[in-house]
Simulated assay, not measured.
Amino acid sequence: MTRVYDYFKLLFQMYKIFFKATLLISVVVVALTPLEALAPVLGVQAGQRLVDQLSAQQPYGYFFCLWTLATVLTQVLPVVGTNFQGMLTDKLTGFIKLSFCVTMIQAKVRSYWMRRRYLCIGVQAIANISVQLFKILVVLS
């Protein structure tokens, strides 16, 4: 049972990192995933109803439009979803690299600061400037 708990704990930690990296793209990916799964089901259901309406010689315009929409969504949503997943991967990779670099810079500053206490103000200012410049470069790239 602890393995299941640890799995979900890690899963939710990863979700936090996703949403921290880029909220909008994460929400779009989460919203598109069930739509990608439901579009083919909707297409099959609408197609079945369309055939039923045609065989009964009843008006079929609504089901034809629904079937057409579902077919288009079945073709378009995987492409759009893959595009957004790629963007999420790029943003997530950049966010992890940025977090790692910031942590390393702060660790180096702390280490240097401990060795050279008399330079504390200057080193801290330089570290803050370099972290801000690094963040700006990552955002611009």
Results as ranks from 00 to 15, higher is better:
residue 44 V to P: 11
residue 49 R to G: 00
residue 93 T to F: 10
residue 109 V to Q: 12
residue 54 L to T: 14
residue 89 T to C: 08
residue 51 V to W: 00
residue 88 L to A: 15
residue 42 L to V: 10
residue 63 F to L: 04
residue 38 L to Q: 05
residue 59 P to A: 14
residue 58 Q to C: 04
residue 75 Q to Y: 15
residue 24 L to M: 09
residue 28 V to S: 13
residue 44 V to A: 10
residue 71 T to P: 10
residue 72 V to D: 11
residue 108 K to Q: 11
residue 107 A to C: 11
residue 43 G to N: 09
residue 42 L to G: 14
residue 69 L to E: 04
residue 99 S to H: 15
residue 101 C to E: 15
residue 78 P to E: 03
residue 85 Q to T: 05
residue 50 L to Y: 03
residue 24 L to Y: 12
residue 51 V to P: 00
residue 44 V to Q: 09
residue 48 Q to R: 15
residue 26 S to I: 05
residue 24 L to F: 09
residue 84 F to V: 04
residue 54 L to N: 13
residue 84 F to S: 05
residue 78 P to G: 08
residue 84 F to E: 13
residue 38 L to P: 07
residue 108 K to P: 00
residue 49 R to W: 03
residue 38 L to K: 03
residue 30 V to P: 06
residue 72 V to S: 07
residue 65 C to Q: 09
residue 56 A to W: 00
residue 65 C to V: 07
residue 58 Q to R: 06
residue 76 V to H: 02
residue 69 L to G: 08
residue 61 G to S: 15
residue 45 Q to L: 10
residue 28 V to P: 01
residue 43 G to D: 08
residue 104 M to K: 11
residue 34 P to M: 07
residue 81 G to H: 10
residue 76 V to A: 13
residue 33 T to R: 01
residue 87 M to H: 11
residue 85 Q to P: 02
residue 104 M to W: 13
residue 73 L to W: 05
residue 77 L to C: 01
residue 42 L to P: 01
residue 75 Q to A: 12
residue 50 L to K: 02
residue 52 D to Y: 03
residue 83 N to K: 14
residue 98 L to H: 02
residue 81 G to Y: 02
residue 67 W to C: 03
residue 24 L to G: 13
residue 65 C to W: 11
residue 81 G to Q: 09
residue 40 P to S: 11
residue 100 F to V: 10
residue 61 G to L: 09
residue 46 A to H: 06
residue 96 I to W: 11
residue 70 A to D: 02
residue 33 T to V: 08
residue 29 V to W: 06
residue 66 L to F: 05
residue 42 L to C: 13
residue 85 Q to K: 14
residue 56 A to F: 01
residue 64 F to M: 08
residue 44 V to R: 13
residue 99 S to I: 01
residue 96 I to R: 07
residue 61 G to I: 06
residue 38 L to D: 02
residue 54 L to E: 15
residue 46 A to Q: 04
residue 52 D to R: 14
residue 27 V to A: 07
residue 98 L to D: 01
residue 81 G to E: 03
residue 50 L to I: 00
residue 40 P to W: 01
residue 69 L to R: 15
residue 64 F to Y: 09
residue 51 V to K: 03
residue 56 A to Y: 02
residue 100 F to N: 05
residue 92 L to W: 08
residue 49 R to F: 02
residue 66 L to C: 07
residue 30 V to G: 06
residue 24 L to E: 09
residue 83 N to S: 09
residue 94 G to S: 09
residue 33 T to H: 00
residue 71 T to Y: 00
residue 91 K to W: 05
residue 98 L to E: 05
residue 106 Q to C: 12
residue 87 M to C: 11
residue 74 T to R: 05
residue 80 V to N: 14
residue 64 F to T: 11
residue 26 S to V: 04
residue 36 E to Y: 03
residue 76 V to N: 04
residue 39 A to M: 14
residue 31 A to S: 05
residue 94 G to V: 00
residue 63 F to V: 12
residue 102 V to S: 07
residue 78 P to V: 06
residue 74 T to L: 04
residue 105 I to L: 15
residue 30 V to H: 10
residue 58 Q to S: 05
residue 28 V to M: 06
residue 74 T to F: 09
residue 89 T to G: 07
residue 37 A to Q: 11
